[in-house]
């Protein structure tokens, strides 16, 4: 019974994953998805740019990035966007892909109607590479010694 449930789960999981186009799929083949109601997943990047009651959120699938146009009330749910210091929230959204938006100067966009799921991002801890620090110290000392030598003994007389 356990195996059967697992199998059903896997079939469901795989079918959901394969039915869900990636952001790159939509950008590379816009006519195939134009006007379709889809479920899409992506990581929020950069800034949430508020425009009145709506906002732009750029989302990436790791390869390409697309603008998602959504009510600001939805965008407010986003806590983290990807940057050097943070892993962005992973959003699953529903909405319509628009290959050429007439309301936004012909931009390709995804009009979000619902945020299905948010997996929160987190702060990225950058561990300092001590080998690099040692290398930096050694090479800085060499540069300093060379500078002294150059100034004291080898400055050309012009």
């Amino acid at each position: 019974m356990k195996h059967f449930v697992f199998l059903i789960f896997m079939i469901f999981f795989v079918s959901v994953i394969f039915a869900m186009p990636t952001i790159s799929d939509m950008i590379n083949n816009p006519s195939a998805y134009d006007g379709k109601f889809l479920t899409v997943q992506g990581q929020a990047v950069g800034s949430v740019m508020r425009r009145g009651d709506y906002a732009w959120v750029n989302m990436t699938d790791g390869t390409q990035t697309l603008g998602f146009w959504m009510p600001y009330s939805l965008a407010r749910q986003i806590k983290y966007t990807a940057s050097y210091d943070f892993k962005g929230d992973l959003l699953t959204v529903e909405g319509t892909f628009v290959a050429m938006s007439l309301k936004h100067d012909g931009d390709m966009e995804f009009d979000v109607s619902k945020i299905v799921k948010i997996i929160p991002g987190e702060k990225i801890v950058h561990t300092i590479d001590f080998d690099r620090i040692i290398f930096l110290i050694v090479i800085s000392v060499i540069a300093f010694v060379l500078w002294i030598l150059k100034k004291k003994f080898f400055t050309p007389k012009i």
Partner: peptide
């Protein structure tokens, strides 16, 4: 500073 270039700003 963004992979979308100027498109990023919408």
């Amino acid at each position: 500073p963004h992979s979308q270039n100027i498109l990023y700003y919408h």
